[in-house]
Amino acid sequence: MPRALEHQHHTGFFVRGPSPTTRLFITALLSLILIATDARLHYLVEVRQGFIALLHPLQVLANAPLELVEDTGEYLHTQTTLVHDNLQLRDQALVHAAELQRANALEAENERLRKLLGAARVSHQPARLAEILHMGRDPFSHKVVVNLGSRQDISPGQAVIDEVGVIGQVTRVFPYSSEVTLVTDKDLSVPVQVERNGLRAIAFGRGREATIELPSLPANVDVLVGDRLVTSGIDGVYPTGLAVAEVVQVDTNPNSPFAHIICKPLAGIENHKQLLLVSIPKTETPADTNTLSTPPRNKKFTVPKRHANH
C-alpha cells in the first residue's frame, strides 16, 4: 500500500505572519515615507498620472449608465419645454400681430386727428370734431350722417371740413345726429375763387361722378388745368381760403358761350371717419353793435340751385 502523505512543516521565521498591529504600523510608516518622498522629491507624479490614465476608461465606463439616464431625461425635458414654448410663442405672435395692426390703425387715426386739430387752428371759427356714423340711404346722393346733432349745438348750414379742405355742409339736423351733404352732391354749391388770379365763381357737385364743375363761366375765362379753387368766404359760411378742388379739365365749344370746367375735390370726400363742423360766424345785431347772435337754429337751410342752363 502506498505510504500516507506526511504533513510537511515549514521552518520559516514568520510561520504565522506578523500581527495586525505590526502590519498597521509598517503600512503607516511606508505611507508616511512615500508621502514625504513625493512631497520633497516628486518621484511619484508620473506614477500617479499613469495610474489615472489607466483608470480613466474604467471611470468613463462606470459613469456611462448614469450619464445616459441624465442625458435622456434632459433631452425629454428639453423637447417638452421647446414644444410648450413654441406653442406659447405662436399664440403671442398672433396676439402681437393683431395688436400691431390696431396700433398702426390708431397711429394713422391719431395722425389724422392731429391734422384735423391743425385745420381747426387755421380756421378762425370754432369747430367741433365729429365722426361719420354711416352713409346716406340714397345711392344717387352724396351724403353722410355724423354723430353730432342739435343737442350738441349743431345747426343747419355749418361748413364741414377736414385737414385738407372743404368736405361739405350740414343740411339736416336731428337731436343726436346730423346729415352732411358733400361738395360732390349735385344739390350743393360752394362760393369759390381761383387761387391764382382771384376769379370768383360758384362750384356745383356733379353727383355720381364725384367731381365738381364751374358753370356759367364764359368761354374765354382765365381758368387753367391745375388751378386750385379755394373758398371765397363771401357766403359767410365757409372760412376764406379753404381748399375745395383742383381744375382737371377745361373744354370750350364754339357753339356754346360757356366753358365746360371740371374739377376734382381735394379733401377726403370718401375717406376717413372724422370731420370738423365749423360754426357759423356770428353777426352784429342792428340794435346793439356789441351784441353777437347766431342765426336761428330752427330756420330751414336751403342750398343754391344750379343755373337753369346747367
Rank of each mutant, 00 (worst) to 15 (best):
P265F: 10
A4T: 00
T11E: 10
L292P: 02
R208S: 12
L224I: 05
V221C: 11
F51C: 04
P295I: 11
V60N: 02
L24W: 04
I35N: 00
D227Y: 11
R137G: 14
A201R: 12
V303Y: 04
I154P: 02
P175T: 12
L32Q: 02
R90H: 01
G136M: 11
R48D: 04
A203N: 08
P156R: 12
Q158S: 07
F301V: 03
Q79L: 14
G268N: 13
E179Y: 15
N290S: 15
L106R: 14
Q101V: 06
H10T: 06
A127S: 15
D185P: 02
T252R: 13
P18S: 07
A53D: 06
E99L: 11
I35T: 06
E163F: 10
I167W: 12
P257T: 06
A308I: 07
G50W: 11
N290G: 10
V225D: 05
R128V: 13
R128F: 10
D227S: 05
N104L: 06
E67Q: 13
A103I: 02
P257Y: 03
R40F: 14
Q249N: 03
H96G: 00
L24I: 12
V183A: 13
A62H: 12
E46C: 02
L188Y: 11
T80F: 10
I234P: 01
P57S: 01
F204W: 13
S155R: 13
V160R: 10
A64G: 02
L24P: 00
P156L: 07
I154D: 10
P215Y: 02
H260T: 03
T181Y: 06
I262D: 11
A243E: 12
H260N: 07
L87W: 01
K115R: 15
L129K: 03
L229V: 03
I280D: 01
F301C: 03
R16C: 03
S31G: 10
E99K: 14
F51V: 14
L41Q: 03
N309L: 05
A62Q: 10
T252M: 08
V221A: 01
P191F: 01
I280T: 09
P175V: 08
D138A: 13
Q158C: 07
L106K: 11
L55M: 09
R208M: 09
K264Q: 14
I52R: 13
R114A: 15
P139L: 12
D288P: 01
S150A: 08
K305D: 10
L129I: 15
E246K: 07
D162S: 05
P57K: 01
A210D: 10
T285E: 14
T294S: 15
H124E: 12
M1W: 05
P295F: 05
I154E: 08
R151V: 07
V248H: 06
I35D: 00
L199W: 12
D235A: 00
G233D: 00
A28K: 02
E109Q: 15
T81S: 05
D185R: 01
N255A: 05
P265W: 14
A219S: 15
V170R: 09
H10W: 03
S216Q: 11
G136A: 12
V144R: 04
L229F: 07
V69F: 04
A93Q: 02
S123V: 11
S150P: 02
A98G: 01
L275T: 00
G205C: 11
V173R: 07
G149Q: 08
L113T: 09
I35M: 05
F51S: 08
Q79D: 05
N147K: 00
